[in-house]
Every structure is written in structure tokens, then in C-alpha cells.
Design a protein around this nucleic acid. Structure first.
Lengths: 334, 334
DNA sequence: CACGTCTCCGCAAACGTTTGCAAAGATCTT
DNA sequence: AAGATCTTTGCAAACGTTTGCGGAGACGTG
């Protein structure tokens, strides 16, 4: 069965294609009755205009491109879910790309999306993205762009983030209040803005009580479980172990958790741990991991809303930075 | 900056647009040297043909539509990741839809994808999809279609599944071998083929040692944690409790797990539990949950490969049913 | 030399929309 | 009654490709 075209509807209604085109979009030039008649006929034939032809004519589509490092991360999966919800309601569709934490792949994804004439792009940058040169292409094409969570600081675009520094500060302050003295930090890559912010929060919190951060207690690594596992292994080999761990995110905390358990140590008795993100899993393991709740679904939703607003306004206006709230979730790991 | 067009390249090369079009696709009618020259010029101007114009002309796109019940499910997230991997490598892009377990939404998603002239569709049906009438539209449009995991039995399409009956049989047999006598089953919706298959496997396993399944030990519910939690609550109220639980999937197992823990019971001492899918989480909680490993990433990859093969062959040929292997993963919950 | 056969390329139509412009008829103004 | 203005519609070009067909020139053949 073939799709009906504007011309088919025009013939059925006894008018010209241009009238149908205008009628379906409630153009004020068209008579109210004509509009009603045409809409009826269109509905009866369940016609909807070919988005490809529309795209060709208008040089834009109703598709929104999304680039995330990895779909399988709990945080990104639920953020995408939030994005999908508002995009869907607004009549857009979602073109999904995965950078696999590779900057080159990210750049190719951008080319792909621009080539597809997406109406806008929502992105969270990869671990290996050191600067935003490839995002400049997006700006050049005047394609609306919004970052969420992992943002590019050198690119002028809307940004939806959380107060990572404050979250980290809260987490570490909590540990300090509990009486822990030597707190290690499993740090993420420096080029990721949120990681360096979390690091700042860590430094600030321990600085507040007059301690200087010990170099040896700061272990840099990636954002995955395996990274937490490896960093923890290093820590456990130290002669003077820390009594608590602040992990840059939950997967890293989980990795550390596993290593600690493997060594037969008890949490929090031998070593305490707090994470960041409030992935579901932190509530299911024993002991539950104290963490910072990050509104992932909400972040996806607002990123999408902000983007759509920008699209509707013709990509005009100041760049917004929206900061969402975090919350300390206390469980038994500290 | 505007996108370059075929015409721009044609002018630069001093040939007609048709020649450029053919040259870029290595049409045999075009002289080898001309091809080389045109390709050079195209590359230098980093031109790539406008997919929208191509789509209009050829009435198909290089986009593949994916419909899943929920992106946030571990299983679907990793399956999507697998899909993305092969789609990307093959030069296609991924249009993602979420049915939110709603059959109507699923139907709308199908309309959307067909309207967008996707090259093919990969789907896993929703919990509330009782029959495949809305998938008939896909067949009518002759759009290639492949189901994975949750398939529509009444629709002629390629299918990528696992042997759910065997998986369930293995899981329950394992419990029986361990000496458990009264095994309850937290069952999924009957309309989901894989759920009814798992149920069959359960019945078969306990039938094999001469026991008849007790009606009261079979609790129907959904596929989420909350369903497992609620079903478990019912079970714990029974006067004569089962000594083991076989859950239709891991989220349900986790829900049951939480309820059991809340009641202060011990796993597996008071009650044993086995799940299905091998979500990461089952390995992280204590005790680890015995489950059936389901190759989610692999399923996504093969679904995509099968679809692309079908697209390339012009949607011809027999419908394939590909059954992937499962594996019993023994942990401490039984 | 006349003809057929290849090789290579361009013309122009087509895909299904959108939109500037013109124009026909209706209504108003003086 | 004759313009002027407003309302409503249609014409035709355009968006950037693809593709059937035709044709110009090169080459071979008898």
C-alpha cells in the first residue's frame, strides 16, 4: 500500500495542493470551512505529510539528535528516557548516537546528525573529548545545541547540569562529620567538567576543616566499574590506607565496592564509601551505598525542553545554564 | 555555512549533476578517471549527498527504527547498544522509540516510523500488546521487520529469541536438584511469548519429577521490580510457603528479594530464588542471585544484522527464527 | 567509406512538499 | 458606479537528488 500524498488529498477535496498544504497548517489565508473540509478528508484517508519532502523544502527536520557516551549507563539510559518523553510529546523524533567514550566517534556522530539536518542536538561529551572543536561545526550550521551533565565549557550553548561541586562537598562533608579522617578520592578525567567540579568540592570540604588534600589519596581513572576496581586495588596496596572513599560516580563506587569485598574487608567497618548519581543499584546491594542523588530523568526532560524552546525561537537568545538540585542519600556504607 | 550540493560539485568538476551522482556511487558508465577526479573534489569540499533529497527520490532512508518497551531496562539498554553498533557500522542511523509498555503507544510509534520511511524496524513488543494487528501495517508497507526477545507470534517476520522454555527448565531443574520441593513461579503476562515459554519450562521441569504444579504457587504479574515485590508479599502471607522462587526475570526477582529481606528472612536459608536475564545487578547484591544469562548485546547485534541483510536483499526470502544460547549462572541465592 | 558498437556523459523529469506572487471574486468606500 | 481593499485560492518554481533515455564521439569492421 502506498502512502497518500498532498496531491491525492487535493484531488479528493477539489482544491489545489497549495491549499491543502496551507489548510493543514491553519494558514490564516484559508477559509475556515475549507480548512475543516480538508482536514476531514485528510483524517479520513489518514494522511500525514511526508516529512522527507517537508525536510527537503524547509531544509530542516523534526528530528532531534542525541549523543551520549554509552547507552547502557544507568544515568544515560534514564536521561534518554526523559528526553524521549518530551520530544515525543512535542512531535519530534529521536535520532540516537553513542560515542563509546571516543572523541573521534563523537565528531563523526556530529557530522552524521548535521548531515541529516536534525532540528537540534543534545549531547553529553565523551571521556576523551579534550576540547569542543567538533562542536563548533554545530554552531556554524546554526543548529541549536544543548549539553547536559558532561558539558563543553568552551562552547556557547545551553547547558543542563547539577551543582557537582556542591554535591561532592556535601558527600565529603558527610564523611567528615561521621568522623572519617583520611578520605581518598577516586577521580574522573580532568577534561570532564563535572569531574573536576566534584574534585573541587572534595578539596573544598576537606580544606574546610583545615586538612590539606594528600596527593597519594587522589587516584585518577575512568568512569566505569573496572576503573573503580583498579583504583581500589592500588589503594589497598598502600601501607597507610584511607578510612573512606569518595568515588566520582556510582559505577566507580561499585567497582571499588567489589574489590573491597574481594579482599574480605567490611564496609563501612574497615573502609567507608560514598558514590555519586544514585544509580538504582546502590540501594539494592548490602550495605546500601551512600550517594548523591542526581535527577537523571529530570535532566533529560529539561535538556529536551530547553532545546525545543530554542528551536521554536529560531535559535535566538542568551545561552542558559540550568542547574538542578542534588540530594545526599544516606545509606549504610559510611 | 551552507551545505554543499551535488550541483556545487558538478560546477567545480565541470560536469553535470547526474555525472557526479553516478560517479560517487561508482556507476560503471562513468569513466574511471572522471570518478577519481569527482571523488577528489567531493572529498576536498567534504561533500556528502543530502540524505533527505535522496530519501525523497528513492522513497526510503538509511534510518532504522527501533521500538522497545523501556530504555531504562538493563536488558533493552544493552540490546540497543548492540543494535547501534552494527547499524552504525553499516552506515545506517537509529531512530529510537519507547512504547512504555503501552500497546497504543506502540501503534503510534509504528505510524511514526513508517511515516518517516525508515528502511526497517526492530521491535520488542509491549506487555500490553495482545495481538499484532498494528504490526500488519508494517508488512503492508513492505517494510522489513524483525522482532527480538518479545516477539509477535502471529506476525510473519524475522525473530531473534532465546530458548526461553529451556532456560526456565534449566533454572527450575537446578532448584529441584538442590533439593527444593515447593517452587513458586512469579509469572509474566501470558501474551508475552517468552513469558509463556518460561512458564512452560517451569511446568515441564517440575512435571519431570512427577509433581503437578500447584495453582496457588503460580503468581501472575508484570515484569518490573514492583511486581516481584507485590507478588512476594502475597506469597509471604501464605500459610504453607514455598521454599523457592523462580522469577520470570531479574527485575521481578530483585523485587521479591527486597520483600524477603524486608521481612527479615534469609536467602537462601528461608527461601531460595532464581531469576532470568543475568542483569548486572544480580551479581552485585548479596547473596548473588542465580539466574539465566541471556545474551542481550548479542541479541541486539544479530537482530540488526538480520534486518540489514533483509533490507539489502529487498525484503525477500524466508523468515528466519534465530535462537541464541542461554546459560545457567550459579550464585548464592539457591 | 559506411555502418555498427561501445564508452561516456548530459537532459529533463520526477519525488512531495512549501511559498511568493498573481489573480478572481466579494465587500467596502466615497 | 467605479475604485479600492480584503479574502480566498491557484500557479509555478524551488528544495537536492536519481534515473531513463538519447546522443556525441571514438573505435572497429567489412
Amino acid at each position: 500500500m502506498k502512502h497518500k500524498t498532498l496531491l491525492d488529498i487535493a484531488r479528493l477535496a477539489g482544491v489545489s495542493p497549495s491549499t491543502v498544504s496551507r489548510a493543514l497548517r491553519n494558514h490564516p489565508d484559508i477559509n475556515k470551512n475549507t480548512i475543516k473540509k480538508i482536514k476531514q478528508i485528510a483524517a479520513r484517508n489518514n494522511f500525514s505529510p511526508n516529512p522527507i519532502a517537508q525536510g527537503l523544502k524547509t531544509n530542516t527536520t523534526s528530528t532531534i539528535g542525541v549523543i551520549v557516551p554509552e547507552i547502557t549507563h544507568d544515568f544515560f539510559a534514564t536521561a534518554i528516557s526523559g528526553i524521549e518523553e518530551v520530544i515525543y510529546k512535542s512531535g519530534y523524533t529521536l535520532l540516537l548516537c553513542q560515542s563509546n567514550e571516543s572523541s573521534e566517534r563523537e565528531s563523526l556522530n556530529i557530522d552524521l546528525l548535521l548531515n541529516h539536518r536534525v532540528a537540534g542536538i543534545i549531547a553529553s561529551i565523551s571521556e576523551s573529548t579534550l576540547n569542543g572543536t567538533h562542536f563548533k561545526k554545530v554552531l556554524k550550521r546554526k543548529t541549536p545545541l544543548v549539553f547536559f551533565d558532561r558539558v563543553c565549557t568552551d562552547i556557547a550553548a545551553d547547558k543542563v547540569i547539577i551543582d557537582d561541586e556542591k554535591g561532592a562537598f556535601d558527600a565529603v562533608s558527610f564523611l567528615l562529620a561521621k568522623g572519617y579522617k583520611r578520605i581518598a578520592h577516586l577521580k574522573g578525567p580532568d577534561n570532564l567538567s563535572n569531574c573536576s567540579q566534584r574534585y573541587k568540592g572534595y578539596v573544598k570540604a576537606i580544606g574546610k576543616i583545615g586538612i590539606k588534600p594528600e596527593k597519594s589519596l587522589i587516584i585518577s581513572g575512568g568512569m566505569n566499574e573496572i576503573d573503580g576496581y583498579n583504583s581500589m586495588a592500588k589503594i589497598l596496596k598502600m601501607k597507610k590506607r584511607p578510612d573512606a572513599i569518595f568515588a566520582v560516580n556510582d559505577p566507580v563506587a561499585i567497582g571499588a565496592f567489589q574489590k573491597i569485598r574481594e579482599e574480605g574487608l567490611a564496609i563501612p567497618r574497615d573502609i567507608a564509601i560514598v558514590g555519586f548519581s544514585n544509580n538504582i543499584i546502590t540501594s539494592l546491594i548490602t550495605p546500601g551505598i551512600t550517594t548523591i542523588a542526581q535527577p537523571s530523568f529530570e535532566m533529560g526532560k529539561t535538556a529536551a525542553s530547553v532545546l525545543i524552546e530554542r528551536i521554536r525561537k529560531g535559535n535566538k537568545g542568551e545561552n542558559k545554564i540550568i542547574v538542578l538540585d542534588t540530594q545526599l542519600i544516606i545509606r549504610d556504607s559510611a
